Computed example of a mutant assay.
Amino acid sequence: MPKKQTYADLGDACATAHAMDVIGDRWSMVIARELLLGPRRFADLASAVVGITPAVLTSRLKALREAGVVEQAQLDDLGRTRVYRLTEWGQGLEDVMRSLGRWAQGSPGFPVPEGSMTPDGVIVAMRTMAPYATMPEWGDGPVRIAIELHDERRPAAGVRRYRLHWDADRFELTEGADEAPEATVSGDSSAWAGVVFAGAPTGSVGIEGDRRAVERVAAAYAAIA
């Protein structure tokens, strides 16, 4: 197969053109999205990037590694599991996704057709949109909730856990369990996306603990819709 010509090969020295050479291929940004929260195995990515074939995933990961966006690593577990993760430079794509998400909201075709979101996809979307949201009623104090999501399309993938700490000066939404949350949200990732981004009732997901804390989060995101 002949080598694909880049914009640089064609004489275009624009930095934006170079960025498109790096992450402009189909699937590349989606792969990066699924790596933003932490390292993932090849099998994790193959399951989460819905529609991609193993051969194409292998090809995209190779290209992203060669470009310096992704690197391979080994976890410190007994099996020394091999994983893929974003490089420090690759982590900068979260800012790109934030800008693209805001830009897409102004699209004549927005909202996009109905579909589903992976657990990591929903959490990344919450992270990238959060700086534009103002939490209502800070007089009620900070919010600390645990979020446990699964993807009904991929039951074998299991549950992913995240923790949200949000107060007037800080927004932190990261992967991992929370030992002392005010409330715990659990359910299908797309149902939670509906609550956060489409105004669906909080009753569409399971909530243990302070329901008001979850409602405040939903109200904050509704304010940016």
Rank of each mutant, 00 (worst) to 15 (best):
M1A: 14
P2I: 13
K4A: 14
K4M: 13
Q5K: 14
A8M: 08
G11W: 05
D12N: 10
D12Q: 10
A13T: 03
A13I: 10
I23F: 05
W27L: 03
V30R: 15
A32C: 15
E34G: 06
L35Y: 06
G38Q: 06
R40L: 13
R41G: 12
F42K: 14
A46C: 10
S47C: 11
L57M: 03
R60E: 03
L64N: 04
E66N: 11
A67S: 08
G68V: 01
V69M: 08
Q72Y: 06
L75E: 00
D76A: 13
R80I: 03
R80Y: 00
Y84T: 10
W89G: 12
W89C: 07
W89Y: 15
G90C: 03
L93D: 07
M97G: 07
S99W: 15
A104G: 00
Q105M: 14
G106F: 15
S107D: 02
P113N: 04
T118R: 11
T118C: 00
G121D: 14
G121K: 09
A125T: 12
A125R: 13
A130H: 12
M135I: 08
G139H: 15
D140M: 12
G141Q: 08
V143E: 04
R144D: 10
I147G: 00
H150Q: 11
E152D: 13
A156C: 06
Y162C: 01
D167F: 05
A168L: 11
D169A: 01
E172Q: 11
G176Y: 05
G176L: 06
A177Q: 06
D178L: 01
D178Q: 05
E179K: 07
E179Y: 15
A180T: 14
T184V: 01
A193S: 12
G194D: 04
G194P: 02
V195M: 11
V196E: 08
G206H: 09
D210Y: 09
R211I: 13
V214C: 02
E215M: 04
E215S: 07
V217N: 01
V217I: 04
V217S: 07
Y221H: 06
A223I: 09
A223L: 10
I224S: 02
A225V: 10
A225K: 15
